[in-house]
Design a binder for these strands. Structure first.
Lengths: 130, 130
DNA sequence: AACGCTGTGTAATAATATAACATTTATAAG
DNA sequence: CTTATAAATGTTATATTATTACACAGCGTT
């Protein structure tokens, strides 16, 4: 069983907002939205984001500098993420593909490096945008 | 046969610099280094970087906002990149693994999305830092 | 020559992210 | 309960990364 983290007020506010969106949100757009809740400064947002990423509640889409909620409710996977990104409408979906995960988990390079994390982003055109 | 791009003066200067480094360089560090060559503004750097990425001469390490030369001299692969990143010393290596590439190339999601590009970043500790 | 395309140079500014400091709250240990 | 320790807060300022806007130059095509 996963340790159930207790979120603080700021963390809850920001997680709520991100979970209500099915698409990634940017830090300053989050800041704008939570000002009415008393969060006034970028750093308050970034701190909460950092924690939420750490515990796997959200993921950062690196190529977009944006944050999306992890839908995988059971296990918090902060360490193995795969996303598909539509380059036209910017729709982002988290991918859970067992076979692909296996390949990635089992990957060994020839440098003897010890991996503990990976992030994979696929780019293309979604059904609507083709 | 690949179309041989002719690089402009700024593009050459910046590619040279990046190729001389075996590690990723950041845009403003590049700017600092090329000021002596008459490149004065961030935009001049970013424009060259954009072009060099586009033609596959360099790649952007998304999680680090940095740019590394593509060592794969024969084919310019701007569309399928894999990197290993040491979280301690920040050493970055481009990975060419035939089997892994196959899996990634052949990956199909269940949303009917058409992929034309991917970027994969592995994180961990390199031999030296373990 | 007129056009489209790509690149240049410059100034200004936008967008993303962190440092530093003082204080408060939560958790654990004696 | 008290101490101590880690984590979070609030605030100001600043650092870092990246783009917009504009005027113009070079080049190949028609």
């Amino acid at each position: 069983m996963q340790k159930q983290e207790t979120l603080t007020k700021n963390q809850k506010i920001i997680l709520d907002l991100i979970e209500k969106s099915d698409q990634p949100l940017k830090a300053y757009s989050i800041l704008f939205d939570v000002k009415k809740k008393g969060i006034n400064a970028p750093l308050q947002v970034y701190r909460a984001l950092k924690k939420l990423v750490k515990i796997g509640k959200i993921h950062k889409i690196e190529s977009r500098n944006a944050f999306i909620a992890c839908k995988n409710s059971k296990c918090q996977i902060a360490k193995a993420t795969v996303f598909s990104i539509c380059e036209s409408c910017e729709d982002v979906t988290e991918i859970h593909d067992h076979k692909l995960s296996e390949h990635l988990r089992d990957f060994k390079d020839n440098k003897g490096m010890k991996y503990n994390k990976y992030n994979l982003e696929f780019f293309g055109l979604c059904k609507k945008c083709v």
